[in-house]
Computed example of a mutant assay.
Amino acid sequence: MTDVTPAWLPLRFRDLDAYGHVYHAEYLTLLDDARTQWFTQLGLSGDGDYVLARMEIDWVSPLGPADRSVRVDFAVEAVGTKSLTLAETMYADDGRAVARSRSVTVRWDRAAAASLPLTPADRRILEELRATEGRP
Rank of each mutant, 00 (worst) to 15 (best):
D3L: 12
V4C: 03
P6Y: 02
W8N: 11
L11F: 02
R12Q: 02
R12I: 02
F13K: 09
D15E: 06
L16I: 01
D17R: 03
D17P: 03
A18I: 01
A18S: 06
Y19D: 08
G20K: 08
H21D: 05
H21Q: 09
H21T: 05
V22T: 02
V22Y: 00
H24G: 07
A25D: 13
A25K: 02
Y27V: 01
L28D: 04
D32S: 15
D33M: 13
D33K: 05
A34N: 02
R35W: 01
T36S: 12
T36E: 13
Q37G: 14
W38T: 06
L42M: 03
L42E: 03
L42C: 05
G43K: 01
L44W: 00
S45D: 12
D47G: 08
D49G: 11
Y50G: 04
R54N: 14
R54H: 15
D58S: 10
V60A: 11
V60W: 02
L63V: 11
P65Y: 11
A66T: 13
R68Q: 13
S69V: 01
S69P: 06
R71C: 09
V72W: 01
V72H: 06
D73L: 07
A75P: 09
V76Q: 03
E77G: 10
G80W: 03
K82F: 07
S83V: 07
L84Y: 11
L84K: 04
T85I: 14
T85P: 04
T85Y: 04
Y91C: 12
Y91M: 07
A92R: 00
D94N: 14
A97E: 15
V98F: 03
V98A: 11
A99V: 06
R100Q: 15
R100T: 12
R102K: 14
S103D: 06
S103N: 10
T105Q: 14
T105E: 14
V106S: 09
R107I: 05
W108I: 06
D109Q: 12
D109H: 14
D109L: 13
D109E: 13
A111W: 10
A114T: 14
S115F: 08
L116N: 09
L116S: 09
L118P: 03
L118T: 04
L118M: 09
T119Y: 03
P120M: 01
P120D: 13
R124G: 09
I125R: 09
I125H: 01
L126D: 01
L126F: 03
E127T: 06
L129M: 15
R130H: 09
R130D: 10
A131V: 10
T132C: 07
E133P: 01
G134N: 12
